[in-house]
Design a protein around this nucleic acid. Structure first.
Length: 484
DNA sequence: CAGACCTTGTC
DNA sequence: ACAAGGTCT
């Protein structure tokens, strides 16, 4: 029997540009590709429902590629990785386990545990970088610490060497190990059962490396032309829509980086637009570095001043927000897009988060948790840093007193109301003039639109200017008590 | 240590 | 005009 090596797929569900997989194959040992559904190690941050839908389809796609290119199948196991990986080594005689690194605190701790455990058993356990452009620790201030400000971080990223060119598809392994027991994807019940909350998502998303590559090509062929402006208009396809693909590692950030650079080399006029896009990719890096250096980021405010902020408790308001029934059309459209599609446009993420944390003064962690469950691109680093950024408690955050006006935001970024009409169809009959504030519409206009406020669309659950004043004074109180 | 600088807004 | 203060060189 040949020596065998396990490649443990994690958040790197791809064959191309996967350095750990490359190295595993290059070892010449019989390759055993494994995925473990581990709901124990992450504890409270195990995959949410929408991510599980995505995972199902992504694993199915990966399995297909493994079969097609290498004639082998993905071995699926469910349980704690710390238990299952050593067991798999016993079962197969594998003397090496390779994987890509992850940056969540629980994942880093798991990697440490495995390191010790395998060292003791004389099994070679190797982690490879592959999910980021720049490893945490490689981008530091002159004082040697982590950056807390994005712009300086990004400047430093660009001053060093470019990320390496991506690797291609690894050649076929010299040998494979077949006949191993595997769960089936159906066993795992990752898809929602009836009622099928994810109905129709297949038409919106194509999880897997192929879908990721197509999205990237579409973006580089079209939306990148006007990225800086169009990225803010949710009724348009103005963004790359790559977030979930990146989160599951179906495409690597350096594949995105270099494909973008190659496009600009062909079309120099895209330079400015593409730099904006690359800087968004760098925000993903920044978030991961922050999480690495501040592992409490998903739980604790980054700025200590917010530790005793007087958050409200209001289950009714929370539910109205979750269900897209706040009476603010733009907020409701965003929340319904999330529920119905597993995704929310970036502009809306800011608007609804500002509304939750400022107008309702509910804790950002409630929003973080809801997003975690509902987003197909849920990612611990991005989600935590995004919520803290809007709440004002984060690194390089939007100041607390910067309170989005949900009406103005709607008028500015959805002037024709296409986005609102798509997700809040009961408002579709309102003329644009009143679409963003139905409660200001004259009775006759409401009647013509078939609207009875409080019945088929809610009245605003809070009044904007008084909510704004209350938020500012809560902030003043918190700041004062902290300064004492 | 001084000085430049700081993703996304509102009234 | 306003809102506050921290980060980084």
């Amino acid at each position: 029997m040949n020596e065998a090596i396990i490649f443990w797929f994690r958040q790197d569900l791809r064959l191309k540009d996967n350095p750990g997989l490359d190295a595993a194959i290059a070892s010449g040992k019989a390759l055993i590709p494994v995925y473990i559904l581990d709901d124990e190690s992450p504890s409270q941050w195990r995959l949410g429902q929408a991510s599980r839908w995505w995972l199902h389809h992504s694993l199915s796609a990966l399995n297909k590629e493994l079969k097609q290119h290498y004639g082998t199948e993905l071995i699926l196991r469910r349980g704690s990785a710390k238990t299952l990986l050593p067991k798999l080594c016993d079962e197969t005689g594998a003397d090496a386990v390779f994987c890509s690194r992850q940056y969540e605190p629980w994942a880093a701790a798991l990697e440490q545990d495995l390191h010790h455990l395998f060292q003791y058993r004389a099994i070679s356990f190797k982690r490879f970088a592959g999910s980021l452009l720049f490893e945490p620790g490689s981008i530091l201030t002159q004082a040697g610490g982590p950056f807390k400000v994005f712009t300086a971080f990004w400047r430093r990223c660009r001053s060093g060497p470019e990320p390496a060119l991506p690797l291609g598809l690894p050649k076929a392994p010299q040998s494979l190990r077949t006949g191993l027991a595997s769960d089936t994807l159906t066993d795992w019940q990752l898809l929602p059962d009836s009622p099928n909350w994810a109905a129709g998502w297949e038409t919106l998303w194509q999880p897997g490396a192929e879908g990721a590559a197509q999205r990237l090509q579409q973006f580089l062929n079209a939306a990148i032309d006007d990225y800086q402006d169009a990225r803010d208009i949710p009724a348009q396809v103005g963004t790359s829509l790559l977030s979930a693909h990146l989160s599951f590692g179906e495409i690597s950030p350096r594949m995105v980086w270099h494909a973008t650079k190659a496009k600009v080399a062909q079309e120099h006029s895209l330079l400015e637009q593409s730099n904006k896009f690359l800087s968004e990719l760098a925000w993903r890096e920044f978030s991961h570095h922050l999480l690495h250096f501040f592992p409490q980021l998903p739980q604790e405010p980054f700025k200590a001043q917010f530790a005793h902020f007087p958050w409200e408790s209001n289950p009714t308001a929370l539910q109205a927000w979750q269900q897209g029934q706040t009476g603010y059309p733009m907020v409701d459209a965003g929340m319904r897009e999330l529920w119905q599609s597993g995704y929310m446009h970036n502009r809306l993420r800011m608007i609804v988060a500002s509304f939750l944390t400022k107008h309702l003064r509910l804790h950002w962690r409630l929003g973080e948790r809801w997003f975690w469950d509902c987003l197909v691109d849920a990612n611990l680093a991005n989600n935590a840093s995004g919520w803290q950024w809007v709440a004002g408690s984060g690194a390089d955050a939007s100041p607390y007193f910067r309170i989005f006006n949900p009406t103005t935001q709607g008028e500015k970024f959805d002037p024709q109301g296409d986005y609102i009409r798509r997700w809040v169809p009961e408002l579709a009959g309102l003329p644009n003039k009143y679409l963003h504030q139905p409660s200001k519409a004259p009775a006759k206009v409401l009647e013509q639109a078939g609207l009875v406020l409080g019945e088929n669309y809610p009245l605003p659950i809070v009044e904007h200017s008084s909510a704004r004043e209350q938020a500012l004074s809560a902030y003043a109180v918190a700041r004062e008590s902290f300064n004492l």
